[in-house]
Computed example of a mutant assay.
Amino acid sequence: MHKVVIAPDSFKGVLSAREVCDIISYKINRHYPFCQIVKVPVADGGEGSIEAFLCAKNGKKIFCDVKGANGETLNCYFGIFEKTAVVEVAQAVGLSLPTRAPALSGTTYGVGQLIGQAVKMGVEKILLCLGGTSTVDAGCGMAAALGAKFYDKEFREFLPVGKNLCEIRSVDFSAMRRLLGLVRINVLYDVDCKLCGDEGAAAVFGPQKGLTPSEISFADKNLAHFAEVVGQACGFRPEEIKGGGAAGGMGAGAKAFFNADMNRGIDAVLETINFNSLIRDADLIITGEGRLDSQSVYGKALSGVCRAAKRMNVPVVDIVGEVGAVDREQLYRFGLTAVFALNNDINCGNAKEKSTLALSALTDEILNLWSIGNRADNARSFNKI
């Protein structure tokens, strides 16, 4: 083995992408001391995106206090490199945060505060990374923190959250747009789902946010109402935006509030790190993530890595914490060669230690299998002589 590219996403809340890279590279060095190892943490626009961009661009983190989903003060950070800021919405309203509000009551106000701080620092572009949120307010809190105004039928200003989106009757984005000026906002989404409907934000991600079936239906109707009112104000239909349902509707909200460009997060990350060039002469790509499921082929990190690898005819091994419902044949058609699971509970109390040990052991097994394949190839070549 001459060259291996290690390109994992984070194991959310357990191991960062950089930690996964370090564990796997250590084992490769033990098996193949002269192998060239390229470590490139990746992300799909959700948790871990800041780390991926800052590793590629040698940027820095900026810390500030903002409001969490239930109004508590959180010390969060965004990334900055060159004249670009990277804001992860999960920093302020992430599902993995120790405290969070019920989905229908949570606000994304803190995300707007992060954006506002970046604007004050004079950035020219903001990469808004969506994914892993506990809210369904379509980003209204984020917009309000930047000066947007939302009014009810009595023309009283209020702060919309998931449960009262249906009360919006009119909006005023003028102050917000003056504050943002010429700053460009690019949305990086990790799922293709739209804002509402059977495959919308509430229907697809409501269960993981803790919503009951009746609450999912209620949230979906509220998101549809948001789309109608805000769409009339902005002159387009937010419910038709691809990726609009990401982060509890923040994709559609960001398009409406900021006229943001919409991009798959993994594609933006891979382009930034020049992934195609890195893998051109690789013998193997090892990627990974906390969970493999049906969403993995729709905008997640694995899908982007596999598409690039398939073009270069490089095998891809995926190491995951757990495997959910997934069509493996579809993954193989995308370019995945094999998938291995850690077979331990990544949500247990000592998950970090257990996952580190399990990942180390599993990497040993994968490399042992690789060496068997190499010996078989060498034997076949010898017999032809």
Score class of each variant (00 low, 15 high):
Arg156Ile: 00
Met262Thr: 11
Ile80Pro: 01
Gly265Cys: 02
Gly122His: 14
Gly162Pro: 01
Gly324Phe: 03
Val5Tyr: 01
Met142Tyr: 08
Ala268Gln: 12
Val14Ser: 06
Thr73Lys: 11
Ala260Ile: 10
Glu322Ile: 05
Phe78Ile: 10
Ala376Glu: 07
His2Pro: 01
Gly335Glu: 02
Ile273Cys: 09
Asp261Ala: 15
Glu322Val: 12
Met142Ala: 15
Gly110Met: 02
Ser105His: 06
Glu19Lys: 06
Tyr151Val: 01
Met176Asp: 02
Asp327Val: 04
Asp220Met: 09
Asp152Lys: 07
Gln232Cys: 13
Phe382Gly: 00
Pro8His: 14
Asp190Pro: 01
Tyr109Arg: 02
Ala341Thr: 13
Glu167Thr: 09
Leu128Trp: 03
Lys60Trp: 10
Leu127Trp: 04
Val320Asn: 10
Ala376Pro: 13
Lys27Ser: 04
Gly210Asn: 15
Asp293Ser: 05
Asp22Asn: 08
Phe81His: 11
Val66Tyr: 07
Asp9Met: 01
Lys221Ile: 07
Glu19Ser: 06
Leu195Asp: 09
Thr73Pro: 02
Asn378Asp: 01
Ala92Ile: 03
Glu88Lys: 12
Asp137Val: 09
Leu270His: 13
Cys76Pro: 02
Arg100Gly: 10
Glu199Tyr: 15
Phe78Asp: 04
Ala233Met: 06
Ile266Gly: 09
Leu331Asn: 07
Gly139Trp: 13
Asp345Pro: 14
Tyr332Pro: 05
Asp364Ser: 14
Lys163Gly: 06
Arg30Phe: 07
Gly288Lys: 15
Glu215Cys: 12
Ile37His: 12
Lys384Cys: 09
Val123Leu: 09
Pro98Gln: 01
Gly245Trp: 00
Gly110Arg: 09
Met142Asp: 10
Glu82Gly: 13
Val326Gly: 09
Pro102Glu: 04
Thr107Gln: 03
Ala325Glu: 13
Ile385Met: 13
Arg177Asn: 14
Asn368Trp: 12
Ala308Gln: 10
Cys140Glu: 05
Ser294Phe: 06
Asn263Cys: 12
Asp364Leu: 04
Thr135Asn: 01
Ile24Val: 14
Ser214Asp: 14
Gln36Thr: 15
Ile23Gly: 00
Ala376Thr: 08
Phe340Gly: 01
Ile285Ser: 05
Asp327Thr: 09
Gln113Arg: 04
Gln330Glu: 15
Leu278Glu: 14
Lys27Val: 14
Val317His: 07
Gly248Glu: 06
Ile285Asn: 08
Thr135Gln: 00
Cys306Ile: 12
Asp345Gly: 12
Ala202Asn: 04
Leu159Gln: 12
Gln117Asp: 08
Arg291Cys: 14
Lys3Ser: 07
Asp172Phe: 04
Arg291Tyr: 08
Asp192Gln: 13
Leu188Ala: 15
Val187Ser: 08
Phe340Pro: 00
